[in-house]
């Protein structure tokens, strides 16, 4: 996921190169925003991500490191911004746990991007239904690809604890997906485009 070219881009970005910043942003931002979505929900994640990048830009002169280091750094900022946001709104991170929103998001996302076999938004929404520690661990480790040490630093937990949480989260996701397929075959059939039966 992280290659040397992103390391180069991070280095150039730190030297003030706007093009390099753009490369880094395009690589890092999507999964960062999805992680923030797990924390604050789909409607606020974009604003929190913007705050995160604004602070990252302001403080970039203090950052030193490679691509992995930058991803960990900016994700730490993002998590702080997300928690601030939740405090401001006096909301708990896991306020929206019902799957109704998941279906809505899944449908719209499938319509929005036909290339995806599984809608990105519905995937994130499903991860968000996990207990927060597991959801965060899955996002940081399995989705963003951060190592356990970096993820542990972001979450303020030991690497082993983060590994465990990620594994439990993945196991829970496997169960959830299985249940969805068996319990509601028509609803879980988000992979086929609407109207496929009519075409056949």
């Amino acid at each position: 996921m992280v290659d040397t070219s992103l390391d180069d881009a991070v280095r150039a970005m730190c030297a003030g190169d706007g093009d390099a910043f753009r490369v880094v942003y395009r690589t890092v931002h999507p999964t960062l925003q999805r992680y923030l979505e797990v924390l604050v929900g789909p409607f606020d994640a974009e604003d929190v991500a913007s705050e995160t990048w604004a602070q990252a830009c302001r403080d970039l002169h203090r950052f030193q490191g490679d691509a992995d280091g930058f991803r960990g750094w900016v994700t730490t900022i993002g998590r702080h911004r997300a928690l601030d946001h939740l405090r401001r709104r006096s909301r708990r991170p896991q306020v929206d746990r019902d799957l109704t929103g998941l279906e809505i998001l899944g449908d719209s996302d499938v319509l929005a991007s036909v290339d995806e076999s599984f809608g990105t938004a519905s995937a994130v929404a499903l991860i968000r239904t996990l207990p927060q520690a597991q959801a965060e661990a899955v996002m940081l480790r399995a989705v963003m690809g951060l190592d356990a040490r970096t993820a542990g630093q972001i979450l303020g937990r030991r690497p082993g604890a983060v590994r465990t949480a990620a594994q439990r989260g993945l196991a829970a996701l496997a169960r959830l997906l299985e249940e969805r397929e068996h319990a509601a075959p028509t609803e879980s059939d988000v992979f086929s485009p609407p109207g496929a039966e009519e075409v056949r």
Binding site: T31, I127, M139
Partner: peptide, 20 residues
């Protein structure tokens, strides 16, 4: 990095990792 060997979960993770 916490990847899964369950095809269903892999598919979900791929979706969550998709490019922007």
């Amino acid at each position: 990095r916490g990847s899964s060997t369950s095809p269903r979960v892999d598919r979900l993770l791929d979706a969550a990792r998709a490019t922007g």
